[in-house]
Simulated assay, not measured.
Amino acid sequence: MKLISLLLAAAALTLGLSAQAQESALRKTLAERIPQMGKIDEVRPTAMQGLYEVRIGTDVFYSDAKGNYLIQGELIDTKARRNLTEDRINKLTAVEFSELPLKDAFTIVRGDGKRKVAVFEDPNCGYCKRFERDLQNVDNVTIYLFLYPILSPDSAEKSRNVWCAKDRVVAWQDMMVRDKNPSNASCDTAAIQRNLAFGRKHKITGTPTLIFANGTRVPGAVDAQEVEKRLAEAASDTTSKN
């Protein structure tokens, strides 16, 4: 029995060393052939035999074992009907809800407000306006709205006018849902600058970007049905952790 355990341990060690050698060789080959790729943060095998994930930051590529071919695209598990690339990127870009600087957002509470979602939006974003109109159909939720002016020069001005308004929620919804720009206002807008810094740190490059209570990040103007689905998933994940 002891001999079998020793043999199994030796086999595991050999496999581990082999995997490390494979990873090192793949890193070396890609660095030599495509130096403009930059520093490779991680190499690991995928669910598909012979295919490796090559990660640079939150960007995911795929390669064969020898680094002769590099693929930029999505890996789909047809049996499970899952986009494995999307799942992986969601994990890489997840933001713990507890890490969000909620003091730099304003809140919109609907119904009992038990469910939570944070949204980064630019006032000049057409997709954000479509999203906001859809969001009117979602109830029993607290929305933490982070002003994130990245699209055009006057995005900062409009964001300031909302942040400094007497009623931020009314000013925001007037602009995004009813196409009525807020009145000029001024106050301390350091919170908006902190939002921009937070977004750069976490690579929030487009609006709207949604972050749910389970840390899942969703880019783009998803409809109310998708928001409901994500809120339910977040609630389920939170319950299972507790």
Score class of each variant (00 low, 15 high):
Leu145Ser: 15
Phe146His: 03
Phe146Gly: 04
Tyr148Gln: 02
Tyr148Asp: 00
Pro149Glu: 04
Pro149Arg: 06
Ile150Gly: 04
Ile150Gln: 03
Leu151Gly: 02
Ser152Phe: 00
Ser152Ile: 01
Pro153Leu: 00
Pro153Asp: 03
Asp154Glu: 13
Ala156Gly: 06
Ala156Tyr: 07
Ala156Ile: 10
Ala156Ser: 12
Lys158Asn: 12
Lys158Ala: 12
Lys158Asp: 03
Ser159Gln: 03
Ser159Ile: 03
Arg160Glu: 12
Asn161Tyr: 13
Asn161Asp: 06
Asn161Ala: 12
Val162Met: 03
Trp163Val: 02
Cys164Phe: 05
Ala165Cys: 05
Ala165Asn: 08
Ala165Ser: 12
Lys166Trp: 06
Lys166Val: 07
Asp167Trp: 11
Arg168Trp: 02
Arg168Gln: 13
Val169Pro: 09
Val169Lys: 15
Val170Thr: 15
Ala171Pro: 01
Ala171Asp: 11
Trp172Tyr: 13
Gln173Lys: 14
Asp174Arg: 01
Asp174Ile: 00
Asp174Cys: 00
Met175Lys: 11
Met175Thr: 02
Met176Leu: 07
Met176Pro: 06
Met176Arg: 09
Met176Tyr: 00
Val177Ile: 15
Arg178Leu: 07
Asp179Gly: 05
Asp179Glu: 14
Lys180Trp: 04
Lys180Ile: 10
Lys180Tyr: 05
Asn181Tyr: 11
Asn181Lys: 15
Pro182Thr: 00
Ser183Gly: 12
Ser183Tyr: 08
Asn184Ala: 13
Ala185Tyr: 02
Ala185Asp: 06
Ala185Arg: 12
Ser186Thr: 07
Ser186Tyr: 04
Cys187Lys: 05
Cys187His: 05
Asp188Phe: 09
Thr189Ser: 06
Thr189Gln: 00
Ala190Asn: 14
Ala190Ser: 15
Ala191Trp: 04
Ala191Ser: 07
Ala191Gly: 07
Ala191Thr: 00
Ile192Thr: 08
Ile192Leu: 14
Gln193Trp: 13
Gln193Pro: 10
Gln193Ala: 14
Gln193Tyr: 13
Asn195Val: 01
Asn195Ser: 00
Ala197Cys: 05
Ala197Phe: 08
Ala197Met: 04
Phe198Leu: 03
Gly199Ser: 04
Gly199His: 11
Gly199Tyr: 04
Arg200Val: 05
Arg200Asn: 14
Arg200Glu: 14
Lys201Thr: 12
Lys201His: 08
Lys201Arg: 13
His202Lys: 08
His202Asn: 14
His202Gln: 05
Lys203Gln: 15
Lys203Cys: 04
Lys203Met: 12
Lys203Glu: 15
Ile204Pro: 04
Ile204Arg: 09
Ile204Lys: 06
Gly206Pro: 04
Gly206Tyr: 04
Thr207Gly: 09
Thr207Cys: 07
Thr207Lys: 03
Pro208Glu: 07
Pro208Phe: 02
Thr209Cys: 10
Thr209Pro: 09
Leu210Thr: 07
Ile211Phe: 13
Phe212Ala: 03
Phe212Met: 05
Phe212Arg: 03
Asn214Gly: 10
Gly215Ser: 11
Thr216Val: 14
Arg217Met: 13
Val218Leu: 09
Val218Asn: 00
Val218Arg: 06
Pro219Ala: 10
Pro219Glu: 12
Pro219Thr: 10
Gly220Thr: 08
Gly220Trp: 06
Gly220His: 08
Ala221His: 04
Ala221Leu: 09
Ala221Gly: 11
